[in-house]
């Protein structure tokens, strides 16, 4: 893990995220969100969590981004109508960022030297998931099923 890669990925991710938050065209914003998430996935690779990075790409880029893009199409191209931009949001976001950064820089315990990376293999993740995390896993399964059915019910044509 070296800092050159870190700096490049950080700039890339934050720039793409900023573009996603501010671009006027919705479709461009959604595509920039994809770029930001790819940057995030490369952070995960950098940190030795390959599996989570791949899952992130798989779920966010493969499913969520396509869903967002699909919704943009289904709701028509009315992104031009309301260009309104709430400037108080900028102030609040900057304030939050300032506070967080101040807190992070103040905390002494965070300047840790990275320990020896022991890569977590997929097999280990599977074993932990099936041993200690069975109930959360089942709950997530139920949640996803409920979300699927709920989303279907919401978008089904209403009886007029």
């Amino acid at each position: 893990m070296n800092s050159v890669a870190f700096v490049i990925i950080a700039i890339f991710t934050l720039a793409a995220a900023l573009a996603a938050a501010t671009l006027p065209n919705l479709m461009h914003a959604a595509l920039c969100l994809v770029l930001a998430l790819l940057g995030l996935a490369s952070f995960f690779f950098l940190l030795g969590a390959e599996f989570v990075g791949l899952v992130l790409v798989f779920i966010y880029v493969g499913a969520v981004a396509v869903l967002i893009v699909f919704t943009i199409l289904l709701t028509g191209r009315d992104s031009r109508e309301h260009r309104g931009f709430n400037w108080s949001g900028v102030v609040i976001a900057l304030a939050v960022f300032g506070c967080l950064t101040w807190a992070i820089l103040k905390a002494q315990s965070l300047t840790i030297v990275p320990p020896h990376i022991r890569a977590l293999t997929v097999r280990q993740i599977g074993q932990v998931l099936m041993a200690g995390y069975v109930w959360p896993l089942q709950c997530v399964g139920v949640l996803l099923t409920a979300a699927l059915i709920g989303a279907l019910v919401l978008v089904l044509e209403e009886k007029r």
């Binding site: 995220a17 938050a21 501010t22 949001g89 976001a93 900057l94 967080l100």
Partner: peptide
């Protein structure tokens, strides 16, 4: 930073 941009 990412969080703040999301908040924005």
């Amino acid at each position: 930073g990412l969080f703040s941009i999301g908040l924005l």
